[in-house]
């Protein structure tokens, strides 16, 4: 295809948007409504995911070492843990430090433990973080089997519940977003189909005068793209303004440790990009699928 022809297709696609004013309005509205819904869910899900991630990140394995172990044994255990799959970090915390932390954590009540500084009942501990929080249980079970390990703690019972809750929340979110996307595709492609059925005569005439299918498709392809992008403008504006204000005013009110919203600055851009891409893809897809029907002569 000559560059001049490509320019013609661009020009033609813009003209068609104007020529088919009300049909354009209908298609853009359909895109706007569904993308707004998709956008809101996206914001909710991504934040929920972020919060869940924060909670998960705090999960760690604490391996308490038996007092019978000597320095070499302790080092050997550390090396063995580090060499395991999926380990992110291994920190050694000697029992003196453990006691100091305990006393500090307990504040005034910590004074009661001061006498133990002479004869520390605590153990040396390896604090292990896994790359994937879900691996915590597997890693903990394995370490339990090592020599000189007195006990392994990772919040048994609590962690399993947390993980299953987070998983369910994530899956529900994914199902909702996928479902919404399908609805959007269906709704938008149907609207576009109606606008193109109205133009079936136009396609028929184009074929009669010798336009190839590719030649006919190009302006429709571009038109679908513009419809998708036009339809994404309002949802993006709406979500940007709302989220910016939510982040600015609501975030400082939230004091609960794990609940932290995604920072407005990169997040709004990310959501905008996602919405534009979804709009464009759905617009193009709907447009091409509808034209295809009339090109089978």
């Amino acid at each position: 295809m000559k560059f001049r022809t490509l320019l013609r297709h661009f020009r033609e696609s813009f003209k068609n948007i104007g020529r088919n004013g009300w049909m354009t309005f209908a298609s853009v509205s359909a895109v706007t409504v569904t993308l707004t819904l998709v956008g809101v869910f996206l914001v909710l899900m991504m934040n929920l995911n972020h919060i869940a991630g924060n909670v998960e990140k705090d999960v760690e394995v604490r391996a308490h070492i038996d007092n019978a172990a000597n320095q070499n044994d302790i080092k050997a255990i550390g090396k063995k843990i580090t060499e395991m799959d999926g380990i992110e970090s291994v920190i050694f915390s000697p029992k003196d430090e453990e006691l100091t932390n305990l006393i500090d954590d307990l504040g005034d009540n910590g004074e009661a433990f001061k006498p133990f500084e002479q004869d520390n009942p605590l153990r040396d501990v390896y604090i292990i973080k896994t790359k994937s929080p879900q691996d915590v249980i597997k890693v903990a079970k394995k370490i339990e089997g090592f020599d000189y390990i007195q006990s392994v703690k990772y919040g048994q019972g609590y962690v399993e519940k947390l993980f299953s809750f987070v998983n369910i929340a994530r899956n529900i979110g994914i199902v909702l977003i996928v479902g919404l996307l399908f609805t959007a595709m269906f709704l938008i492609s149907n609207t576009i189909k109606i606008t193109i059925v109205a133009r079936r005569k136009e396609i028929e005439i184009m074929r009669l005068v010798g336009a190839t299918n590719t030649f006919i498709r190009w302006p429709f392809f571009l038109e679908g793209l513009w419809l998708g992008i036009l339809g994404a403008i309002v949802p993006i504006g709406l979500i940007a303004v709302l989220y910016y204000n939510l982040y600015k005013y609501a975030q400082p009110q939230i004091t609960f440790k794990f609940v932290e919203l995604l920072p407005a600055s990169p997040f709004i851009y990310q959501v905008s990009a996602i919405l534009i891409v979804i709009g464009a893809v759905i617009g193009i897809w709907g447009s091409l699928m509808s034209v295809r029907k009339f090109l089978k002569v």
């Binding site: 005569k201 028929e204 005439i205 184009m206 074929r207 009669l208 005068v209 010798g210 190839t212 299918n213």
Partner: peptide
């Protein structure tokens, strides 16, 4: 082939009762 029909039609002219003009 169906896809080559438009190419063939470039070499013939067609006129219809209902004119078949692009209205826009």
């Amino acid at each position: 082939r169906n896809s080559k029909v438009p190419l063939f039609r470039r070499n013939i002219g067609m006129v219809f009762q209902d004119f078949k003009l692009l209205q826009t």
